[in-house]
Amino acid sequence: MQVLRKLLFPISIIYGLIVFLRNRCYDLGVFKSKTYATKIICVGNLSVGGTGKTPMIEWLVRLLQDNYSIAILSRGYKRKSKGFLLSDDNTIVEDLGDEPFQLKSKFKGIHVAVDANRRNGISELEKMANPDIILLDDAFQHRKVKPDYSILLSAYNNLYVNDWYLPTGNLRDAKSEAKRANIIIVTKCPEDLPESKKSSIRSKINPKRHQKVLFSYLSYNKKLKGKEIDLSELINKEVTLVTGIANSVPLENFLQLEGVTFNHLKFNDHHFFTEQEIQLLQKKECILTTEKDYVRLKSKISNLHYIEVSHEFNKEDRLVFEQTLKQFMTANS
């Protein structure tokens, strides 16, 4: 696979040129970015693959929901509906897609909508929900909308500064576009990342004067949900780990450190399970999955547990992040 990606290097040059020209047209005003009366916070990345966008949306909701009315707008990747859809109590996972449905299920007081056309989605949310804030999920590269505040995520083991354009690398946007972010968060770091390593990463990223570079790590909840038990109760069981996410390595490493042995059935990101796959899973003694996969499996599989994951920051970075967001929310309000 890596050899094939290298052979496709000429295509990545063409792709990079197209990306450059597109961004240049927006910078020069040839293409227009639209602003809105509602405050827009964008969460995204420059690459394909998992950087933890959904847990970051959850982090923002928890921080802001007590003081503001919040709506979330996502593309709804691999959903089976079309156009704009504002979720309600009758909405099913196939309508929204797995990640938006996860957010809808977890935060009952939040409006969750999907629309591939972000401009239309924002306009519809303003009319139907009139929120104080709209959180744009996975929209950093969607320059038709100009957000008021942008959070750029980059995974520790695959920093955008070390990457290259698709299909040779994983970049879907130019590295230089990081300049549009207010905050750059390096996600999925080791919990005990030394300051010397942070300094080295900051130097590579070379942030602009207006930007802050913060570091987060993944925290897994040892109290499993679904069928609720403690993670330690799986140690002597025959566990099948089922994942349909971009990068399952951090979860695999965590489970191994906790002494959980497992047989791993790995599917593509956002995978919708076939009847044949469901029948196979129904025969397993104990299934552990991610929260995103759980919303696609919960009505079909018994003896199903899921593990919650969240972003965590050290005390200093958390304080910086919270203060910066609160300053943004109170400005011009």
Score class of each variant (00 low, 15 high):
F9E: 12
F9V: 10
P10E: 11
P10I: 08
I11T: 11
I11N: 06
I11L: 15
S12L: 08
S12T: 13
S12P: 08
I13T: 10
I14K: 12
I14F: 14
Y15D: 07
Y15N: 10
G16S: 15
G16R: 12
G16P: 07
G16F: 06
L17H: 11
L17S: 14
L17D: 06
L17V: 15
L17F: 15
I18M: 13
I18A: 15
V19T: 10
V19K: 12
F20N: 12
F20K: 15
F20C: 12
L21W: 11
L21V: 15
R22Q: 09
N23E: 08
R24S: 14
R24Y: 14
C25S: 15
C25K: 14
Y26K: 10
Y26D: 09
D27W: 02
L28P: 04
L28A: 12
L28C: 13
G29E: 09
G29M: 09
G29A: 09
G29R: 11
G29P: 10
V30T: 14
V30G: 11
F31V: 09
F31A: 12
K32D: 03
K32Q: 13
K32G: 07
S33Q: 13
T35E: 13
T35V: 12
T35P: 00
Y36F: 15
A37T: 14
A37R: 14
T38L: 03
T38Y: 04
K39F: 04
I40V: 13
I40G: 01
I40A: 03
I40R: 06
I41W: 02
I41C: 06
I41H: 00
C42H: 03
C42V: 07
V43Y: 00
V43E: 03
G44H: 05
G44P: 08
G44N: 07
G44W: 01
G44S: 10
L46T: 04
S47T: 15
S47G: 08
G49C: 06
G49M: 06
G50F: 03
T51K: 08
G52R: 04
G52T: 06
K53P: 06
T54D: 04
P55Y: 00
P55A: 05
M56R: 05
M56P: 02
I57S: 02
I57M: 02
E58H: 09
W59D: 01
L60V: 01
L60C: 05
V61H: 06
R62W: 00
R62L: 09
R62K: 15
R62M: 07
L63H: 05
L63C: 06
L63A: 09
L64S: 02
L64T: 03
Q65C: 07
Q65F: 02
N67R: 09
Y68I: 05
Y68F: 13
Y68S: 05
Y68T: 06
Y68L: 10
S69Q: 14
S69T: 12
I70Q: 04
I70N: 04
I70M: 00
I70L: 10
I70F: 01
A71C: 06
A71D: 06
I72D: 00
I72S: 03
I72E: 00
I72L: 08
L73C: 03
L73Y: 00
L73W: 01
S74D: 02
R75F: 02
R75I: 05
R75A: 04
G76C: 03
G76I: 02
G76Q: 00
Y77A: 04
Y77I: 02
Y77M: 07
K78C: 00
K78D: 05
K78M: 02
K78H: 08
